[in-house]
Amino acid sequence: MAELTAVLASTHHPFYYKATTSPPDERPPYAGDWQRKVEAYRETLIAADPDILVMVGADHFHQLWLDNYPQFLIGQAEQYDATFYNEEREFGIPKFLLQGDVDFSRYMHQELMNQEFDLAVSHELKIDHSIICPIITVRPEADLPVVPIYTNIFVPPLPSPKRFYELGRAIRRVIDSYPTEKKVVAIGTGHLSLELGGPRQFGEHGPDPLFDADAIEWLSTGNAEAILANVTHESMSGVGNATHGFMDLLLMMGIAGEGEHADYVDQLDLFHTREMYITWYPYKNQKQAEAATAAAEVSDASTGPIYANDAVWDQFREEKQESEQGTGADALSAVGEGSER
């Protein structure tokens, strides 16, 4: 049977390629730290020695469109072109041609159907940056066959968070049962709190750093119960209108399993959004443990969960407290003024 040697869940950011490949004098000030962290994260994939990548993303209105928008879709093609004109235009991302694995896609599709997940299928799928960003960050050779799975995080009504999590659980069962001697790694990308095309976009920090703190704790401790109790479509909208990509990270946590602590966890406050890089090794061996430790030394990452009470978020907790106290003081002062009149 296939061995699932790693599960990677990360944010994807289409600026990474240009930020880190521009001439030195054109690179943004944050590029150096970002590249160091991404290249360290890449080492955690190398240690998993993958033969096939199951990749989870979400088409951003590139091929999939409102005349016929699937909730979940699997690609089943011999090859996949990647990167659309408007992604080259806006982000400078190059074109790729990824190899497919038709047999594994067909098996995945049928077995997910057998588990009551009725995915749509595409036999001519062009991949967008939700899957190419992680190729660029963790497998820039783009040399492995992929099984792409797309989710709807964009077109209401969306599937529930529970449905994303359960799909992750189902994908795990399918990988575990696939008759092959090959090593499989599942890689999926999404977002923490994020705003696009709204008033909170491109601010000094992500729209809700304290949601990000909870999200990273929940994901890195495999705390499905907390996520399903606290995260709804409405609550995600409240912390940023494009936060629903968090559900793809939840899906990846489903593949890793409930209660599974992550083996590598990193994050980076990249002004308008927070980046996150998580790896689970379901059958961690010494080589993987050493790789995670070595990578963490380079990137200042953690080789276990990062909790919401981490000092990284003190600044935001203090700001929130001050703002709440400020609001309270204003309210009291307003009452006082009112009573004097």
């Binding site: 209105f61 235009r89 964009f154 696009l196 494009a242």
Partner: peptide
């Protein structure tokens, strides 16, 4: 849609 409204006007 917020994504379309953003990307086209960025273009």
């Amino acid at each position: 849609h917020f994504f379309l409204n953003l990307t086209l006007f960025i273009a």
